[in-house]
């Protein structure tokens, strides 16, 4: 083991590499970067691989746009964005993304409403309540939860959780039915609803929110925390007056990252929802569809449908891109503030 580890600092400079000559001959020394030829190649190669990543994302958008031109050109972009159904059997075909997009947004919203409090609270538990020894294991556990494939979540939600949750949905429906979105009609089928899909997606999103929030909470300056405690505040008082204001950016950014993930969630939703595109507002009843789930179920159809799916994918691409960019801006801003210490 020890023999494989070379001591880096002691590595002799390779004779083959030319050392940049010192330019001290001039009167006014101008410090300038004069890289060796290998270094210039090094710069080029790394720049190329960096730019490749950049280009790749642009290409994704470009090709989705190119492939979707047939569908969008056929019906017009306004019609595509405002049609809720998806019928290719009539002529002219009526396909649109409105029903899918509202479904996507509703499921993501349900997930976020459940996941944000849960994620924040579990991040608080890890950073402020758990003992130092258990903190490490809890963090690992949350990370593991984030690594479980969405397929397995979907499987579990589809075959096990659905039944349990439909009794909860029935309870909500009977007692809170006066709120419009919780309305259920008599003898309605309560399985495969957007509510159930939202709960399952929430479980996938919680670890993301929890890990971002935990990271930011952990950076709270200890001096301020101790000051709050020394002034006689309780633990909750300290959290409310120091940790939460400090970690606000982390919570918001983490929630938006989670929202991005929830919007793009595919397999679990395609198993859980019937994927019939339409505007559905009763979230507790059977029904609903999302862009990604619909794409998966209709893959490999005729060229026109495929082109329509590409267009739907493009809409999803734009929506998630905007959400994620906003999220990373918020998180970055909250981290840059983290450097300001007492």
């Amino acid at each position: 083991m020890a023999t494989t580890e070379t001591i880096p600092a002691a590595t002799p400079p390779p004779a083959a590499d030319p050392v940049p000559a010192p330019t001290s001959a001039r009167q006014r020394r101008v410090i300038q970067d004069k890289p060796a030829r290998v270094d210039r190649w090094f710069d080029r190669v790394t720049l190329a691989s960096g730019l490749f990543v950049l280009v790749l994302l642009v290409l994704v958008g470009f090709f989705l746009l190119q492939r979707s031109r047939r569908a969008i050109g056929g019906i017009g972009i306004i019609d595509f964005l405002t049609t809720e159904g998806w019928r290719t059997d009539v002529s002219p075909p009526e396909i649109g993304v409105l029903g899918l997009l509202t479904g996507t947004v509703i499921v993501a919203m349900i997930a976020i409403v459940i996941a944000v409090p849960l994620g924040t609270v579990s991040a608080l538990f890890i950073t402020e309540y758990a003992s130092i020894q258990s903190r490490k294991y809890l963090t690992a556990l949350v990370d593991l939860l984030a690594a479980i494939p969405s397929l397995i979540f979907g499987l579990w939600g589809f075959l096990a959780l659905s039944g349990q949750l439909s009794s909860l949905a029935e309870w909500i429906g009977t007692h809170f039915g006066w709120i419009p979105i919780f309305e259920i009609s008599k003898d309605a089928n309560l399985t495969n609803s957007m509510f159930i899909a939202g709960v399952v997606v929430a479980l996938m999103v919680v670890p993301i929110i929890a890990s971002v929030a935990r990271e930011v909470f952990a950076q709270t300056p200890p001096g301020e925390k101790e000051a709050a405690l020394a002034l006689g505040s309780t633990r909750w008082g300290m959290i409310r007056s120091v940790v939460l204001p400090y970690g606000k950016g982390g919570i918001i950014g983490g929630s938006m990252l989670g929202l991005g993930r929830a919007l793009g969630e595919t397999i679990a939703v395609s198993l859980l929802l019937p994927q019939v595109p339409a505007l559905v507002y009763r979230i507790l009843e059977n029904g609903g569809s999302t862009v990604s789930g619909f794409i998966v179920l209709r893959a490999g159809a005729d060229p026109f449908t495929t082109s329509g799916l590409m267009a739907a994918g493009l809409v999803l691409f734009v929506v998630t891109l905007v959400t994620n960019s906003l999220a990373s801006v918020v998180v970055a801003r909250s981290r840059s503030g983290a450097g300001v210490d007492l």
Binding site: L57, L257, F317, T320
Partner: peptide, 9 residues
């Protein structure tokens, strides 16, 4: 941005 790209895309 790419790490948030939905896998289906």
């Amino acid at each position: 941005a790419m790490s948030g790209l939905p896998s289906v895309l």
